[in-house]
């Protein structure tokens, strides 16, 4: 494993939580109820907290003069390695919940493996994050059930989101070159082995929510290689606005 492999591997994990945290923070103050607003903000806070731990670690490992903010705000679009799923827009609350649910189920499995990493820092971050993400998964699963088995309208809306976002789930289990290199050295984990359990868990909850499992066999990919959807550029122009407009300043 080269150092660059490890850096890219951490980006692959950390960029997911940064971008999803950014998406969730767009909602703050605009949710369907105060309670859901508070819960979504909580999740965003957890995810951004995790982001900071990962980026601080990368900064410390590789570039003494770089900070977590340089990593978060000053890369170009192709350098972000998050999956396509997390950058998808907040089309409506159904999309917010389904995106969260599809990610949470994966995220928890990933962290449960990552806590056994031979890299002590990654293992420690994972251990701390497991507690937070278990809550996220409970929150999103509960809402999948509420929306799926709530009213006719909510059923329809959440089914629409499930159908639309399903095509982004397969990418979660793709291995990049960096994933393979870090796996071989015991630092990284093999996401391929999580796949069966993932779909089993997702399907169980969807069925309980009286939702149909989509039958698509065509999936989207690219985020892990930094080839993102058109949504990503707009998300980054918000995210990076201050750092780009006022370079090299302390805030």
């Amino acid at each position: 494993m080269k150092k660059e492999n490890l850096k890219q591997y951490i980006y692959g994990i950390a960029d997911n939580v940064l971008i999803l945290g950014q998406r969730l923070s767009e909602l703050c103050g605009h949710g369907p109820s105060l309670e859901t607003d508070i819960a979504c903000t909580n999740i965003a806070l957890d995810l951004l907290g995790q982001t900071r731990s990962y980026y601080q670690y990368v900064a410390q490992l590789f570039d003494e003069d770089k900070t977590e903010d340089d990593i978060a705000f000053l890369r170009t679009e192709r350098q972000y390695k998050n999956v396509l799923l997390v950058e998808q827009p907040n089309t409506h609350f159904g999309y917010v919940i389904v995106r969260q649910f599809f990610f949470d189920v994966f995220h928890l499995q990933l962290l449960q493996q990552l806590q056994n990493s031979t890299d002590e820092t990654l293992s420690a971050i994972a251990k701390k994050a497991i507690k937070e993400v278990s809550y996220h998964k409970r929150f999103s699963s509960d809402w999948i059930k509420r929306l799926g088995d709530g009213t006719e309208e909510s059923h329809q809306k959440v089914q629409e989101a499930v159908n639309d976002l399903w095509r982004f789930t397969d990418e979660l289990f793709h291995m990049t070159e960096d994933d393979i290199a870090t796996l071989e050295s015991g630092v990284g984990i093999d996401v391929r082995v999580l796949k069966d359990k993932y779909y089993q868990q997702v399907k169980e909850i969807l069925q309980e929510a009286t939702l149909d499992i989509p039958e698509t066999s065509w999936f989207q990919k690219g985020g892990k290689q930094g080839i993102h959807s058109e949504h990503m550029g707009y998300l980054l122009s918000d995210l990076q606005y201050m750092q780009r407009t006022y370079p090299d300043m302390k805030w």
Binding site: P32, S33, T36, H92, R146, L147, G150, T151, E153, S154
Partner: peptide, 8 residues
Amino acid sequence: KGEWVRDA
């Protein structure tokens, strides 16, 4: 916009 969510 949140009405359908609260109803559900």
